[in-house]
Design a protein around this nucleic acid. Structure first.
Length: 202
DNA sequence: AGCGGGATAGTCT
DNA sequence: GACTATCCCGCTG
């Protein structure tokens, strides 16, 4: 059985042990899976943003600011950094080494399995692209919340598996970080070129 | 295009 | 304990 593409299983720690900007691109096309009592829902990652804490004014961990919230980013890579933004929960993947607080924000996914569940969680919204084309939307659709803070992404119930290989990757400035000095112009947002589920510019 | 929701963490006094 | 900023969304006009 060599058709590993068909096996949905967590990527190993090794996958997360690459520089943050490379990981942000490697994550594109991967399958994000969340298993809950209600059922399993998953989707392909199509948009990410890199946050390089020590040098990145836009990051919560800028200048190595270490608090209860940012603590998980100082640990090993491959863990979930969840935080709340107004009414929404946002999901980041911790990257880089221990004591190097960097991460990748998952900004959009393309629904793959458990679509009925996602639709219900999104209040029955009809337009499928509106279920997951934004960082706060996809966490709602997958049922991801703050209780997954610090979860190890190489194991259920929340994990990332191999998906498809994007034919082309686009890069550009990040979203929603206007007050971040020169950091707002860094092209650290990555997405699958011409993909309909990429989030909208605001 | 604007604005208000309603949740948390961080920073003050 | 209060005030304020935040890696946002959906509704109104």
């Amino acid at each position: 059985m060599t058709r590993s593409l068909l096996a949905i299983e967590p990527l190993p720690l090794l996958f997360y042990q690459q520089p943050t900007l490379e990981l942000a691109q490697s994550l594109l096309g991967c399958l994000l899976v969340h298993e809950t009592a209600e059922g399993t829902a998953s989707g392909f990652i199509v948009e990410t943003e890199a946050y390089k804490g020590p040098f990145d004014r836009a990051a919560h961990s800028f200048n190595n600011r270490r608090t209860k919230r940012t603590e998980v980013m100082f640990g090993p890579p491959g863990h979930a950094y969840t935080h709340t933004m107004h009414t929404h929960c946002l999901l980041n993947v911790v990257s880089s080494d221990i004591d190097c607080p960097e991460g990748v924000l998952i900004r959009a996914i393309e629904p793959f399995s458990g679509k009925n569940l996602m639709k219900n969680r999104r209040r029955g919204m009809e337009n499928e692209t509106n279920w997951t084309n934004g960082p706060g939307k996809l966490t709602k659709a997958l049922g991801v919340s703050m209780d997954l803070y610090g979860h190890d992404l190489t194991s259920p119930p929340l994990y990332i598996a191999r998906g498809f290989t994007p034919s082309e990757i686009s890069a550009g400035p990040r979203v929603g970080i206007d007050n971040s000095g020169e950091a707002k112009d860094y092209p650290w947002r990555f997405w699958v070129a011409n993909h309909p589920f990429v989030s909208k510019f605001r």
